[in-house]
Protein backbone atom coordinates (compact mmCIF):
# COMPACT_ATOMS: atom_id res chain seq x y z
CA UNK A 1 0.00 0.00 0.00
CA UNK A 2 1.38 3.39 -0.92
CA UNK A 3 1.87 6.22 1.60
CA UNK A 4 -0.65 8.24 -0.37
CA UNK A 5 -3.33 5.62 0.14
CA UNK A 6 -2.57 5.56 3.88
CA UNK A 7 -3.01 9.33 4.01
CA UNK A 8 -6.24 9.03 2.05
CA UNK A 9 -7.41 6.41 4.53
CA UNK A 10 -6.55 8.62 7.50
CA UNK A 11 -8.36 11.55 5.88
CA UNK A 12 -11.41 9.39 5.24
CA UNK A 13 -11.33 8.24 8.87
CA UNK A 14 -11.14 11.86 10.07
CA UNK A 15 -14.14 12.73 7.88
CA UNK A 16 -16.11 9.71 9.08
CA UNK A 17 -15.37 10.55 12.72
CA UNK A 18 -16.44 14.14 12.10
CA UNK A 19 -19.68 12.97 10.50
CA UNK A 20 -20.44 10.52 13.31
CA UNK A 21 -19.68 13.19 15.91
CA UNK A 22 -22.03 15.59 14.12
CA UNK A 23 -24.92 13.20 14.49
CA UNK A 24 -24.06 12.08 18.04
CA UNK A 25 -23.35 15.59 19.36
CA UNK A 26 -26.52 16.92 17.80
CA UNK A 27 -28.63 14.44 19.74
CA UNK A 28 -27.32 15.76 23.06
CA UNK A 29 -27.43 19.45 22.21
CA UNK A 30 -29.38 21.61 24.68
CA UNK A 31 -28.30 25.04 23.51
CA UNK A 32 -30.19 28.21 24.42
CA UNK A 33 -31.44 29.66 21.13
CA UNK A 34 -32.30 33.17 19.96
CA UNK A 35 -35.96 34.31 19.77
CA UNK A 36 -38.01 32.73 17.02
CA UNK A 37 -37.03 29.10 17.45
CA UNK A 38 -40.10 26.91 16.89
CA UNK A 39 -38.58 23.61 17.99
CA UNK A 40 -34.99 22.40 18.17
CA UNK A 41 -35.62 19.92 15.36
CA UNK A 42 -37.21 22.56 13.13
CA UNK A 43 -34.37 24.95 13.91
CA UNK A 44 -31.69 22.38 13.08
CA UNK A 45 -33.43 21.48 9.82
CA UNK A 46 -33.49 25.09 8.65
CA UNK A 47 -30.38 26.77 10.06
CA UNK A 48 -27.60 27.03 7.47
CA UNK A 49 -25.20 28.61 9.97
CA UNK A 50 -24.87 31.81 7.93
CA UNK A 51 -24.37 33.81 11.13
CA UNK A 52 -26.53 36.75 10.06
CA UNK A 53 -28.48 36.68 13.35
CA UNK A 54 -25.14 36.89 15.17
CA UNK A 55 -24.15 39.90 13.07
CA UNK A 56 -27.54 41.54 13.63
CA UNK A 57 -27.70 41.31 17.44
CA UNK A 58 -27.30 44.84 18.93
CA UNK A 59 -26.14 43.38 22.25
CA UNK A 60 -23.71 40.84 20.75
CA UNK A 61 -25.51 38.20 22.77
CA UNK A 62 -25.29 35.51 20.11
CA UNK A 63 -22.27 33.39 19.38
CA UNK A 64 -21.50 30.30 17.33
CA UNK A 65 -21.86 26.98 19.15
CA UNK A 66 -18.52 25.21 19.58
CA UNK A 67 -17.40 21.90 18.06
CA UNK A 68 -18.79 19.88 20.99
CA UNK A 69 -22.29 20.66 19.71
CA UNK A 70 -21.81 18.23 16.80
CA UNK A 71 -23.99 19.14 13.85
CA UNK A 72 -25.12 22.21 15.81
CA UNK A 73 -21.56 23.60 15.78
CA UNK A 74 -21.69 27.04 14.21
CA UNK A 75 -25.38 27.59 15.00
CA UNK A 76 -26.31 30.66 17.06
CA UNK A 77 -26.69 30.21 20.80
CA UNK A 78 -26.69 32.28 23.97
CA UNK A 79 -24.63 31.97 27.12
CA UNK A 80 -27.20 33.55 29.44
CA UNK A 81 -24.80 34.11 32.32
CA UNK A 82 -22.33 35.94 30.08
CA UNK A 83 -24.69 38.01 27.92
CA UNK A 84 -28.39 37.27 27.78
CA UNK A 85 -30.93 38.13 25.11
CA UNK A 86 -32.51 41.58 25.65
CA UNK A 87 -35.74 40.75 23.87
CA UNK A 88 -35.42 43.69 21.44
CA UNK A 89 -38.75 45.12 20.41
CA UNK A 90 -37.97 44.65 16.70
CA UNK A 91 -36.10 41.30 16.90
CA UNK A 92 -33.29 42.03 14.40
CA UNK A 93 -32.02 38.43 14.72
CA UNK A 94 -35.34 37.03 13.52
CA UNK A 95 -35.48 39.60 10.71
CA UNK A 96 -31.98 38.61 9.58
CA UNK A 97 -32.69 34.87 9.34
CA UNK A 98 -32.96 33.93 5.64
CA UNK A 99 -34.38 30.42 6.08
CA UNK A 100 -37.04 30.87 8.77
CA UNK A 101 -35.09 28.91 11.37
CA UNK A 102 -36.06 31.93 13.49
CA UNK A 103 -39.56 33.14 12.65
CA UNK A 104 -43.06 34.13 13.76
CA UNK A 105 -42.13 36.59 16.48
CA UNK A 106 -44.03 39.84 16.80
CA UNK A 107 -44.43 40.60 20.48
CA UNK A 108 -41.97 40.29 23.35
CA UNK A 109 -44.06 37.48 24.75
CA UNK A 110 -43.75 35.41 21.53
CA UNK A 111 -40.24 33.92 21.82
CA UNK A 112 -40.11 30.40 23.14
CA UNK A 113 -36.43 29.62 23.67
CA UNK A 114 -37.04 28.03 27.08
CA UNK A 115 -38.02 29.06 30.59
CA UNK A 116 -36.21 29.92 33.79
CA UNK A 117 -36.18 27.63 36.79
CA UNK A 118 -35.07 28.58 40.32
CA UNK A 119 -33.16 26.27 42.62
CA UNK A 120 -34.83 26.73 46.00
CA UNK A 121 -31.83 25.35 47.87
CA UNK A 122 -29.51 28.13 46.74
CA UNK A 123 -31.79 31.11 45.92
CA UNK A 124 -31.44 33.55 48.83
CA UNK A 125 -35.07 34.67 48.61
CA UNK A 126 -36.03 31.28 49.97
CA UNK A 127 -33.80 31.96 52.96
CA UNK A 128 -35.71 35.13 53.72
CA UNK A 129 -33.41 37.71 52.11
CA UNK A 130 -34.87 40.54 50.04
CA UNK A 131 -33.32 40.22 46.58
CA UNK A 132 -35.82 40.29 43.68
CA UNK A 133 -33.05 41.00 41.17
CA UNK A 134 -34.49 38.50 38.71
CA UNK A 135 -37.96 39.93 39.14
CA UNK A 136 -36.92 43.54 38.55
CA UNK A 137 -34.72 42.83 35.53
CA UNK A 138 -37.27 40.61 33.81
CA UNK A 139 -38.43 42.21 30.51
CA UNK A 140 -41.82 40.65 31.27
CA UNK A 141 -41.97 41.77 34.91
CA UNK A 142 -45.20 40.72 36.66
CA UNK A 143 -45.95 38.40 33.75
CA UNK A 144 -43.10 35.91 33.53
CA UNK A 145 -41.89 36.49 37.08
CA UNK A 146 -44.14 37.52 39.95
CA UNK A 147 -43.41 37.80 43.67
CA UNK A 148 -45.14 35.33 45.89
CA UNK A 149 -45.38 36.63 49.44
CA UNK A 150 -45.00 33.78 51.86
CA UNK A 151 -45.08 34.03 55.64
CA UNK A 152 -41.89 32.90 57.31
CA UNK A 153 -42.16 29.82 59.40
CA UNK A 154 -42.08 30.52 63.18
CA UNK A 155 -42.19 34.25 62.52
CA UNK A 156 -45.37 36.35 62.65
CA UNK A 157 -43.84 39.56 61.32
CA UNK A 158 -41.59 38.78 58.33
CA UNK A 159 -42.42 37.68 54.83
CA UNK A 160 -40.41 35.87 52.17
CA UNK A 161 -40.44 37.53 48.72
CA UNK A 162 -40.31 34.47 46.52
CA UNK A 163 -39.73 35.05 42.79
CA UNK A 164 -42.10 32.77 40.94
CA UNK A 165 -41.76 31.95 37.27
CA UNK A 166 -44.62 31.18 34.94
CA UNK A 167 -42.99 28.75 32.48
CA UNK A 168 -45.75 29.38 29.95
CA UNK A 169 -45.04 33.10 29.81
CA UNK A 170 -41.26 33.09 30.31
CA UNK A 171 -39.47 33.39 26.94
CA UNK A 172 -36.11 32.04 28.10
CA UNK A 173 -34.25 35.29 27.36
CA UNK A 174 -31.92 34.54 30.28
CA UNK A 175 -31.61 38.07 31.64
CA UNK A 176 -32.46 36.81 35.15
CA UNK A 177 -29.63 34.29 34.86
CA UNK A 178 -27.18 36.99 33.74
CA UNK A 179 -28.10 39.27 36.69
CA UNK A 180 -28.65 36.77 39.50
CA UNK A 181 -26.72 38.01 42.54
CA UNK A 182 -25.73 34.53 43.69
CA UNK A 183 -23.05 32.37 42.16
CA UNK A 184 -21.88 30.24 45.09
CA UNK A 185 -22.04 27.28 45.10
CA UNK A 186 -23.71 27.85 41.74
CA UNK A 187 -26.15 30.24 40.07
CA UNK A 188 -29.57 29.26 41.44
CA UNK A 189 -31.51 30.24 38.33
CA UNK A 190 -31.03 28.66 34.94
CA UNK A 191 -32.85 28.31 31.65
CA UNK A 192 -34.43 25.00 30.76
CA UNK A 193 -33.93 25.33 27.02
CA UNK A 194 -36.56 24.35 24.49
CA UNK A 195 -34.40 21.39 23.44
CA UNK A 196 -34.23 20.20 27.04
CA UNK A 197 -37.94 20.53 27.77
CA UNK A 198 -38.80 18.84 24.47
CA UNK A 199 -36.63 15.90 25.43
CA UNK A 200 -37.99 15.59 28.98
CA UNK A 201 -41.63 16.13 28.01
CA UNK A 202 -44.00 19.06 28.38
CA UNK A 203 -43.51 22.04 30.69
CA UNK A 204 -44.82 21.37 34.13
Amino acid sequence: MSAGKVIAGIAAAVLAAEGAWSVAGNAQSKLLRPPGIQSEADFMARCIKCGKCIEACPYASLHAAGPSAGAAAGTPCIDAREQACRLCLDFPCVAACPTGALRDVEKRTDPNAGYARIDEEVCIAYQGYRCEVCYRICPLIDQAITIDFQAMEEDDIHTKFIPTIDPHVCTGCGLCVERCAVDEPYVPIRIITLAESERSGARQ
Binding site: L15, G51, I54, H63, A64, P67, A73, G74
Partner: peptide, 11 residues
Protein backbone atom coordinates in the same frame (compact mmCIF):
# COMPACT_ATOMS: atom_id res chain seq x y z
CA UNK B 1 -13.06 34.48 10.31
CA UNK B 2 -16.37 36.34 10.47
CA UNK B 3 -17.91 34.94 13.66
CA UNK B 4 -15.68 32.21 15.06
CA UNK B 5 -17.52 29.09 13.89
CA UNK B 6 -15.25 26.04 13.96
CA UNK B 7 -17.63 23.71 12.09
CA UNK B 8 -15.87 22.01 9.18
CA UNK B 9 -12.37 22.37 10.64
CA UNK B 10 -11.72 18.64 10.57
CA UNK B 11 -12.90 18.46 6.97
Amino acid sequence: LVFGSLAGGLT
